[in-house]
């Protein structure tokens, strides 16, 4: 098993966990952490797996920014949906 270390200041737990979620179909992995690092142990550690992991990490970092920037909007959409479904059901 080879290990990959990633700094906690660069990668949030959300990014790490979501990336690993999709890595399951590619290889087995284990996650551990210290105060400032995530350590990922990969059962299969070849270039392809590692580049896949990095792509996932990058994509999830972008997704995290979107989620952070749009959280308030997402919440109000949720409230809006419930009201709009309500009124639609009532009008039927």
């Amino acid at each position: 098993m080879d290990k990959i270390s990633l700094s906690k200041s660069n990668y949030s737990e959300w990014v790490i966990r979501n990336s690993l979620y999709w890595l399951t179909s590619v290889t087995n992995w284990q996650l551990s952490d210290s105060d400032s690092f995530w350590t990922i142990s990969l059962k299969e550690n070849n270039d392809q797996v590692v580049s896949q992991l990095h792509r996932l990490l990058n994509d999830y970092k972008l997704r995290e920014i979107i989620a952070n920037k749009t959280q308030r909007i997402t919440d109000s959409i949720a409230v809006n949906v419930l009201t709009s479904i309500d009124s639609r059901l009532k009008s039927q």
Binding site: I73, N80, T83, L89
Partner: peptide, 18 residues
């Protein structure tokens, strides 16, 4: 137009679910 966009996204999602 942010509030309009929110209302629109919500209406579209509600429509899909219904």
């Amino acid at each position: 137009s942010v509030n309009t966009a929110i209302a629109s996204l919500a209406s579209a999602l509600g429509k899909r679910v219904t």
